[in-house]
């Protein structure tokens, strides 16, 4: 197995699937300013996806570029964590999904910035600034919604109950992540969990939200076992390059 390729795909696919979903908010946000904000975050995610997938293509060395990887892989070839493919739902669902991811992305990018691979470190350094801003945004909204009205509190508590079981996938460890730590080019995500937990508990207390009781976590994205949503998402995202395989755009 090309562990470096696999590892980079995971990074790229998380960003790609989140970016794809955030793009759906453009024009449909709760207020104009927030429309612009969600699109900005989506743009950062797409930018990160392009960087990671390009690097993944290089690591694979089969001539696949970012678009080949994004548009011509089937569902089982995608390596994003299950959390990222949770549907947008309402604004609170999107904010919770983004917050749970951002709280992982911040320690992830900090660790990746220490990579012994200069290309990985460079992308991570740029991404770290973006994810720090994303966390600031999603955290502030989680607090506003959690400690807002009774309705918003209930809604966003339900979002959290719904999303949290899918977050465990972010911390999945296997021979790919072991290779990353052994060879020094990336962290094992399971080592990021303590940082993530700290951000989570601090934010939930400020937002007056309850940590849902632990339930079995949903795992599978890193191995290409996905939820129902991903196939729909890919069908939409990939429609043009798949319909016109010879075309350039």
């Amino acid at each position: 197995m090309n562990t470096r390729f696999e590892y980079l795909l995971r990074l790229g696919d998380d960003a790609l699937i989140l970016g794809q979903q955030l793009g759906l908010w453009t024009g449909h946000g709760p207020v104009l300013e927030e429309d612009i904000a969600l699109t900005n975050i989506g743009l950062d995610q797409i930018g990160q996806a392009r960087a990671w997938l390009s690097l993944a293509g290089k690591a694979e060395n089969q001539g696949r570029d970012e678009d080949r990887l994004a548009f011509h892989r089937n569902q089982e070839g995608f390596r994003n964590a299950l959390l990222c493919e949770r549907p947008n739902g309402h604004f609170g669902d999107t904010i919770v999904r983004q917050f749970l991811f951002d709280a992982y992305a911040v320690p992830l990018h900090a660790a990746l910035a220490q990579s012994n691979d200069a290309e990985i470190a460079a992308i991570a350094l740029k991404s770290a600034k973006e994810s720090a801003y994303h966390l600031r945004h999603s955290r502030a909204w989680l607090v506003r919604l959690g400690d807002g009205t009774e309705e918003s509190h209930e809604k966003v508590q339900a979002s959290l109950d719904l999303m949290l079981p899918f977050a465990g996938d972010l911390f999945f460890s296997d021979e790919v992540t072991t290779a990353a730590t052994d060879e020094g080019w990336g962290p094992d995500p399971s080592d990021l969990r303590a940082d993530w937990e700290a951000i989570l508990s601090d934010t939930l207390s400020e937002a007056q939200l309850r940590r849902p009781d632990a339930v079995p976590e949903q795992i599978g994205g890193r191995q290409g076992r996905h939820t129902e949503q991903l196939s729909f998402l890919l069908a939409e995202m990939q429609v043009l390059p798949r319909t016109y395989p010879d075309a350039k755009w």
Partner: peptide, 15 residues
């Protein structure tokens, strides 16, 4: 428009 000062800064950054 923003509900609070923090949001005003973030929105200004994006807008």
């Amino acid at each position: 428009h923003a509900a609070d000062a923090e949001m005003a800064i973030e929105n200004a950054r994006d807008v």
